[in-house]
Amino acid sequence: MKKHVVLYKKLSPGLMARLHAQAEVTLIDKLDSDGLTRLRDALPSAQGLLGASLRLDAELLDLAPNLEAVASVSVGIDNYDVDYLSQRNILLSNTPDVLTETTADTGFALILATARRVVELANLVRTGQWKQNIGPMHFGSDVHGKTLGIIGMGRIGEALAQRGHFGFGMPVIYHSHSVKPAVHKRFNAQHRSLPQLLEQADFICLTLPLTAETEGLIGAREFALMRPESIFINISRGKVVDEAALIEALRQGQIRAAGLDVFEREPLEHDSPLLQLNNVVATPHIGSATHETREAMARCAVDNLLAALAGERPLNVVNGEVWDRRRATMCT
């Protein structure tokens, strides 16, 4: 008998056909009030869940007593109560690797756009205000040769370092829990304490996950350590930053500009002060948003889920202790 999968994300026809061939599928194509009601109704018989951008807390999970596996179409896991999933012996998988390069591209696009004031000056042309040669008041700043500071040297941090070091001749400094010898060797990158990085970097880029430890990591004290010519980039999660402190730092000229793909609340409110600042480039959480990468992420999630439901180890397991317990049971 096919296992029941509740899908709360639209997939390509090919992936939908694959899921239907191997599982009984309930599709919730929109997470509005009606969709959430349908989701709750489907959870009691669900053995697998696949989707993204939905907070799966204990209240929802308690509606799914038969649940075996959750496959997230994302690398971040802040929408999931991992401890509770593990207590319930439910496998959680995610989709790292396939979005690394695309997200790093987004980060570097924000670096270039903020440094060269691309959005601001493009709007000058678009609105008919370009009446004479551009003068110093509209000059940007160079990227090549500037110091790139990366907070969180994981896969995406390394991909960003690669672009900066090899493409733009940027000295790379980074802050992470541990020194990364391979990063030192490949990019001549130097480890720094967080205050040292904030004081020394021209471009300060966040590429770390949202956890209890990193929430609110960058606030007023950290912005005060940055230099007036510093440019701040966030492609991690909005809640890593105290947004009110960021707005104040931009208004007071503590930093030159910010390139932001993530925010404390998403979608960003239309009256957010960030949208009134010319030195902010704001994009709608597009880090992995290309046709190729989103399809690869969905394919990876389908692979993970079908493997888990077949009693096999998914390629990308978040809570490996659950798999270890299952394997021990299978071996006895």
Rank of each mutant, 00 (worst) to 15 (best):
F203M: 00
F203T: 00
I204P: 03
I204R: 02
I204L: 12
I204F: 03
C205Q: 07
L206A: 03
L206M: 09
T207V: 14
T207L: 10
L208S: 07
P209L: 05
P209R: 08
L210Q: 08
T211G: 12
T211Y: 09
T211P: 09
T211F: 10
T211K: 12
A212G: 14
A212T: 14
A212M: 09
A212F: 06
E213I: 06
E213T: 13
E213L: 11
E213Y: 11
T214R: 02
E215L: 01
G216I: 03
I218D: 07
G219A: 14
A220S: 15
A220L: 08
R221P: 01
R221H: 11
E222K: 01
F223R: 07
F223E: 06
F223G: 12
F223T: 08
L225E: 12
M226I: 02
R227T: 14
R227I: 05
P228S: 11
P228V: 05
P228G: 11
S230R: 01
S230Y: 02
S230H: 02
S230G: 06
S230C: 04
I231N: 01
N234P: 01
N234Q: 01
N234F: 00
N234D: 02
I235W: 01
I235H: 01
S236W: 05
S236Q: 05
S236C: 10
R237D: 07
R237M: 07
R237H: 11
G238F: 03
G238H: 05
K239H: 03
V240A: 09
V240P: 10
V241G: 11
V241S: 11
V241I: 15
D242M: 05
A244S: 15
A245W: 02
L246Q: 04
I247E: 08
E248V: 08
E248F: 00
E248S: 10
A249F: 05
A249G: 07
A249E: 00
L250P: 10
L250K: 09
L250S: 09
R251T: 13
Q252D: 15
Q252E: 15
Q252K: 15
Q254Y: 00
Q254G: 09
I255M: 00
R256Q: 14
R256D: 04
R256S: 13
R256L: 14
A257S: 14
A258Q: 05
A258M: 05
L260H: 10
L260A: 12
L260K: 10
D261G: 11
D261N: 10
F263P: 07
F263S: 10
E264V: 12
E264A: 14
R265N: 13
R265A: 13
E266P: 00
E266N: 01
P267E: 09
L268M: 07
L268Y: 06
E269A: 15
H270N: 14
D271A: 05
D271W: 01
S272P: 04
P273F: 06
P273D: 12
L274I: 02
L275I: 03
L275K: 11
L275R: 14
L277M: 15
L277V: 12
N278G: 15
N279T: 12
N279M: 08
V280N: 02
V280H: 03
V280P: 04
V280G: 04
